[in-house]
Amino acid sequence: MPAASGKADITAMEAFGRGWNRFWFTPADPLPACVLRIAVGLIAAAHFACLSPELDRWYASDGLLTPAAVQRLLELSEEPVHYRFSYLTYLASGEVRIVHIAAIVAATLFALGLLTRLSGAVTLLAVLAYVHRIPIVAGSLDPLLAFLLAYLCIAPSGAYLSLDGLLFRRRAEAAGKSPSGPLEPSILANIALRLIQVHFAMFCLMMGLSKLYGDAWWDGNAIWILLAQTQSRPLDLTALRRMGRAGEYIINVWTHATVYFELAFPVLIWNRRARPLLVCIGALVWTALVLVTGQLLFGLALIVTSTVYLPPAFFYALLGRRGESLSPQGSTASATAS
């Protein structure tokens, strides 16, 4: 018996090892990472642009919360302060604008796919600089952008739909070589996409779990409370109250659906058949959440990120190249995509 058990353990370990290797180290088509790069770059550029009107007031060293005040507030909330570095700490009103423009340019270059890894790293550095300058008021979008940018810098996300790819092919053609280099399936693309998938699943779980602490998310009133905030709500949807009991039920369903979806998503998304349905429901749930929270870019980023679970064929179809794709994962490269 012990011998049989030991053999079974070894087999289980081997199976786990094979599964691990298949999950992380199977070469994957970089196209999903490239499409995601464009979306993330544009969202990051829009995010920076949204900071522009109040830039000096918030982020200059002589802003509403000075670096010393931020440090003191973090200490008072017993947050560690030593690992927060921001170059904005050293820049006064006016100077901040120069690096801010550089951040917008970097995010735009990342979306365009020019010097992709470098522009991605600079965009990430800029996102982190705004977060660390005043973490107390950092928005919901920043942590999502941070990990998306970090992982997309790992992937060859400039392989397709990018100026880098265009320049590479031009150079290869000029040299009389086959310009098929960047179109190969890539292990790095797979690692990056898998990291995004796993991290995003945990992120959704965290969003769902944090809501469970509040009574309002249990008794179905959380959405109403957000709608009733006369100063911060983006839309006045309080007319739902005039619908009487039906309105109350709509609010209850809206509240419960948000929590249940965020708790179910990280579990069910790993089921191949459930994926398209979950991505569609996610688009609905997060759009509905944008209507009450007003976090437009965050909602957009959630919807865009959820597509990372879809197969490359979806992205080819999105580009009007239905039926095209690289050879199946794990096989040698063959660039069927032009």
Binding site: E79, S140, K211
Partner: peptide, 12 residues
């Protein structure tokens, strides 16, 4: 670590 970000929006 989005420790300071309230993803619950409201707790009622």
């Amino acid at each position: 670590d989005p420790n300071l970000t309230p993803y619950y929006y409201t707790l009622g």
